Computed example of a mutant assay.
Amino acid sequence: MSDPFATLGFTRSRLVRHSSEQPDDAVPSPDAPGTRLVLMAGDALVLREASAILAAEDGARADRLITGDRLFLGHLDGRPVFAAAAASEAAAAYADAPFRTLDLRTIATEGAVPHEELGLLATAKSMLGWHARNGFCANCGTQTLFRAGGFRRECPACAVHHFPRTDPVVIMLIRRGDRCLLGRGPHFKEGMYSCLAGFLEPGETIEAAVAREAYEETRVRIGAVAYHTSQPWPFPSSLMIGCTAEGLDEAIVADPAELADARWFDREAVRAMLERRHPENLFAPPPMAIAHVLMRAFVEGRA
């Protein structure tokens, strides 16, 4: 039986995390000896050879371009790790070997860093993105203050505390007998099919969200739903909740606003998609994606 976490991106991390519950005086100085830095230049992460966890001196060349505070992520191997965002022009400062810049999706797809670094990078990207979007109080509009090493923002006017958010998304492998339902969004690469997915709505259970999304996109009604596995998805900050579900209907009526196509596929067809040998050149998402893991579980009889 294959290990779903062997290829699943962003699920492994050796970071001893900081949190909003820890006081400000527990945050070390960014200049402390042995400090490490995750640096984003625009939408790209700075890599030194096969790692995106830089020594403090490696980040010094972009100091003047760093925007905002340095976020304290926690400790790695006993050393403090910070994350910082820099203007996109900072990428030019890392154009020479041993440095390069890559976006996080490419890093995960190509295996450009060790697998256990991906969880830490997902935390850094999600948190930096949250700060970039939440500089003002949603309650009164006042500019908020950076607190708890970056795991909280506080409003000096109305005293409201703001915390990083994670948006839950259900993604489901719908099966009917020996076939499963896969679709392709209008924005997908030509030939790629994946599991259906959608955001969980307020006041909704996971099971209800699976049923609603499936029906809205394909008019297929859903019976039993089971949890399979999950994956942080830092684009910008979601948690993919992987499920399997029983399809009660054969006919598919795809919503053209959501799907360019949807079909039932048997196990051999899905296996061919995973192995990039389908006769129609159809293929699955890459191994780092939870949809790939769910499709492989179906092929191996574990869904």
Rank of each mutant, 00 (worst) to 15 (best):
V113Q: 00
M288P: 02
D261F: 03
S230V: 01
Q143E: 15
Y215I: 05
H228D: 11
P156S: 08
Y215S: 07
P287N: 13
A60H: 12
A90P: 04
T109P: 00
A85M: 12
M192E: 14
I66Y: 00
R153K: 11
L65Y: 05
S88N: 04
E116A: 15
P287H: 08
L182T: 07
M288R: 01
A132G: 12
R36W: 03
A52H: 05
P279N: 09
L259E: 09
G191A: 14
F151S: 03
I290G: 00
P33L: 03
D3V: 09
A211C: 03
L8Q: 02
W130P: 03
H18A: 14
R271D: 14
L173F: 03
Q143C: 05
K189R: 14
F10W: 13
L8V: 08
A122V: 04
A303P: 01
M240L: 14
G135N: 08
G247M: 03
E207Q: 13
V38S: 04
L121R: 00
A291Y: 02
R212D: 04
V270W: 06
A211T: 02
G183F: 01
M295L: 13
G149A: 10
A209N: 02
E246K: 08
G111H: 05
G74W: 06
H228V: 13
A92M: 12
N281S: 15
F146Y: 10
A86Q: 07
E116L: 12
R179M: 01
P236C: 00
L239H: 09
A32Y: 00
A269F: 05
D24C: 11
V293Y: 01
G223M: 07
A26I: 09
G119N: 14
V38D: 01
